[in-house]
Design a protein around this nucleic acid. Structure first.
Lengths: 130, 130
DNA sequence: TTCCTTGCAAATCGTTTGCATAATG
DNA sequence: CATTATGCAAACGATTTGCAAGGAA
């Protein structure tokens, strides 16, 4: 198994993610880091985002917008995707993991977990829509 | 707005989808129809799957495996994705739409719905794993 | 005849990967 | 020195699209 070496880029990527709670995409991370690291490449960003995800230091959000989002908050929590502006917001709510039991009843396989996120209009778009 | 015309290909795609409950991908639909329609193109399959989805005649499942699956059953129900073999199975379970209320409490936006699916080992892979 | 739909191929988009070079331990 | 990480560009896989020709109303 690979013997992880330190890298400025990886640090910068993780640091960048920790400063934001809007769950940026790889491309946003890339653009955001271009200023401080003009030579950083998209490949490096992707490689490190995947690595950090595998290490459990960040989490990858795969919503239905077709682009992966990343979140430095690895605690269990739920997300909201705005169908109008596409923004992703954290939701404050209790766990709903008991739905796994509901799903498991009458199912012969083994339920390991669920993927759940909510959609609709974010506060800003809702206000605008009036 | 376009004035929908009839097409054999569209009929065949819908019919094919209705014969299967394994939630095939566009490519599987394409391959499956090649026998009866040797000249059908992938583009046509994609175009019609999207059209049928927009018409509400089928539903598109966007799971975390990176490939869209399609389901001719448009009634509300839940899906299970096997993390080992990648198969997609329907789950028999009551609605969990009340989680929308949980999500909406303390959220300023408007929750329109949720995307939820379960994952783990399907019956076959579970048995095999012993 | 109108114009929607098709087949085909090229294009797009997000993401991954090969390779030579740079950086880390 | 042994290896991992990087930058760059090319490769990828899924899906979309432009266009000329075919088919439905």
């Amino acid at each position: 198994m690979a013997a992880l070496k330190h890298s400025k880029q990886r640090d910068a990527i993780l640091a960048f993610l920790m400063t934001r709670k809007d769950h940026p995409t790889a491309d946003v991370v890339y653009s955001g880091l271009r200023e401080e690291y003009p030579n950083i490449s998209l490949g490096t960003v992707y490689r490190n985002l995947t690595l950090l995800t595998d290490l459990g230091q960040i989490q990858r959000l795969r919503l239905s917008d077709g682009v992966d989002h990343f979140d430095a908050d690895t605690s269990q929590h739920y997300h909201f995707l705005c169908t109008k502006c596409g923004c992703v917001i954290d939701l404050e709510m209790e766990t709903i993991d008991r739905i796994n039991q509901l799903a498991g009843a009458g199912f012969d396989g083994q339920i390991a977990g669920n993927v759940t996120y909510f959609y609709g209009l974010c506060p800003a778009c809702k206000k605008e829509n009036k």
